[in-house]
Design a protein around this nucleic acid. Structure first.
Lengths: 131, 131
DNA sequence: TTGCAGCGTGTTATAAAATAACAAACTGAT
DNA sequence: ATCAGTTTGTTATTTTATAACACGCTGCAA
């Protein structure tokens, strides 16, 4: 049987996975409160940090929001592309970019441990519309 | 004579420039309140957005904090390296990295307009200490 | 089977970050 | 001198996140 903690994590992940739009912790809270009126913020944040550590969820720092990992969770560093028009989010994995960042860091003696790479702009379909 | 708005911006920038550590809006507020007890958050946030638009201040999304631009303000995209041990922040300008991100974006039809690139880790001196 | 350790959750409260909305004061131009 | 435009002040509120501790379940060991 599933452990209790994993149930909450599964519920949170399911909420996030229903959309490619980022959700804030409070969006998720509202969604899950429908089935559990007593749910409170710490529970959501606890599930989110566990999921983030597992690589199943990405936190988008520039939106204070979260998205499910499109690849079902892995260890690589994601480049996040956020469409500011429609709100959709896309992941890319660009090892050469990470390598270059690593090289440049090394030159100045910096040792990177966590990468936050978020691009804001327009996705293909929104850019099309505006032309 | 200076315009009024510019005075507030200069005060905020001066606070930030005194350190290479990031300051939150409320840190700046506290610092400036010493000389002006009535100062309130909106005034600080207004100055910060003006300074950010001018490129004189960078917002660090992953810390909800701000640093003065080390190069005294320009238009290029900064890569920010944050030492999680001592809190110091360093900027780098890496056009090849930005180019690569641009190329990869183009491939998926994404048009980037704002880049958030923040590396967390250890700076040279902190890394040394831990060895 | 009882008791207890460990863990996840519930609950309350609060902290921290940001903004909305409108009033008041200043600036510069006419 | 007045008025339009802009900056700042002020109050209140919203949004995001966490601290602190109580409660209750689960599984193991005595």
């Amino acid at each position: 049987m599933q452990k209790k903690g994993e149930i909450m994590q599964a519920n949170v992940l399911e909420s996030l996975a229903k959309t490619d739009r980022p959700m804030t912790a409070y969006d998720i809270l509202a969604a899950l409160k429908v089935h559990n009126a007593k749910l409170a913020p710490p529970t959501i944040y606890r599930a989110l940090s566990a999921l983030t550590e597992q690589g199943k969820v990405h936190r988008i720092e520039s939106l204070n929001a979260y998205v499910a990992c499109q690849c079902d969770g892995h260890e690589d560093i994601a480049v996040i592309a956020i469409c500011d028009d429609c709100g959709s989010v896309d992941e890319q994995y660009l090892p050469e970019v990470i390598d270059r960042l690593g090289q440049a860091s090394e030159k100045v003696g910096f040792t990177p441990k966590r990468h936050v790479i978020e691009l804001h702009g327009s996705c293909a379909s929104c850019e099309e519309v505006s032309n």
